[in-house]
Simulated scan of single mutants.
Amino acid sequence: MPIRLASHVLPLLLCLLLALATPLHAQQPTAVIAAEARLESWSDPIEALGTLRADESVTLSATVTEIVAELAFGDGEVVEAGKLLVRLADDEEQADLRVAQALRDERRNAVNRLAQLQERNLAPRGDLEDARARLRQVEAEIQGLEARLANYRLRAPFDGVTGFRNISVGSLVTPGTELVTLDKLDVMKLDFNVPEVFLSLLEPGLTLTAHSAAYPDDDFTGTIASVGARVDPVSRSVPVRAELDNPDLKLRPGMLIEVVVQRQPRETMVIPEAALIPEGNRQYVLVLHENGDYQVERRQITIGARRKGEVEVLEGLSEGQLVVAHGTERVRDGQPARLLGILDDDTSVPEILRRERDASEAES
């Protein structure tokens, strides 16, 4: 008995037969966005939290009981090594020094007279030696007075930034009174702890990147200066100290810093993570051959580490090859593709789509 089909089914069957009969090369290419496999610097990061310290830090205190005679610094002032910061009243000590200097001149003249007489055998040699001994004695007293006078003048021991001034001229200070703080801030020390499992991977010279909540848009780079000699038996972590350049003096002691240590730095092949097509334990990508119609090849690759939005390729790709980054679910192995654009640091997916839309509107 012959099978009769409804009249409205015949056109649908005809369209289906035509579609099946259409050769693959005659199909409309699928639009895709690609990315280029490229060599980039890569490292396996170790993340931690650390605290900043000044490269050099000191609190200058009084060592004598006296009145402040002069303050030669302001709050947060950048000073050079050797600059006078605080002078205490030293009138009495200066007077003692002048007395000793006068006595030195007197005894020096006596030595000179006795030396001239001794040359003419008119004075005993013993008198000359005694005069020289008395001269050395007063010279030692002068050195002691000058050393004590240094305690009345506080100078910057190194280039740095002063703290707040909390004393005034005329204040009576005693030994131990804190007069001024000074911090060397052009280089900062960054102390942080990492788990002991990374101990074998840490060594002086490794680079790191530091971030502060105070400057969210800034990256501060530095290097590990030293690794602690002991592991904390409670936290099982090892202390690490790094050094950061701070030419703009943005970083300050005590700041909390996010640290990313660049472990095992290397040059490696990198593609966007969106280009991966996982199947069990295997990873595939769709390679675009630049032969005019961008024919698609499904290829297995071997991947390494991952980071935000990117993956390391160990085997399967060469530098400069194009892989499908967006549109992997619509295109198949062996099909032609229409390349809308190539992603890079300056070109994003929305920008590529906007350019394609503008071009389509211009043609229509």
Rank of each mutant, 00 (worst) to 15 (best):
L135G: 09
A213E: 15
P233I: 11
F158W: 02
G205F: 05
K189A: 06
R230I: 03
V231F: 11
V238F: 00
S200W: 12
P239A: 05
V227S: 05
P204F: 04
V138T: 00
G222V: 14
P216N: 05
G205L: 05
G222P: 05
D232C: 10
Y215P: 07
P157R: 04
N166T: 10
S212G: 04
G144T: 07
A156D: 01
P157E: 01
F164A: 11
L199D: 14
T207R: 13
D183G: 12
D130L: 15
R155A: 00
V231I: 10
P216L: 08
D217S: 15
D219G: 03
L201D: 12
D191E: 13
F198I: 05
G160M: 11
A225E: 07
L154H: 08
T174N: 08
R136V: 02
F198L: 09
A213W: 08
R148W: 04
L202R: 02
V234C: 08
N151Q: 14
T221F: 13
Q143I: 00
S212R: 10
A229D: 06
S168Y: 11
G160Q: 13
P239Y: 05
T221K: 11
R165S: 08
H211A: 09
V161F: 06
F198H: 13
L201S: 12
L154W: 11
E196V: 02
V138N: 02
G222R: 04
E196Q: 05
V197M: 14
Y152I: 04
V169S: 01
V180Q: 02
S200E: 12
L135D: 00
P239E: 01
E196T: 01
R165A: 15
A147F: 01
N193E: 15
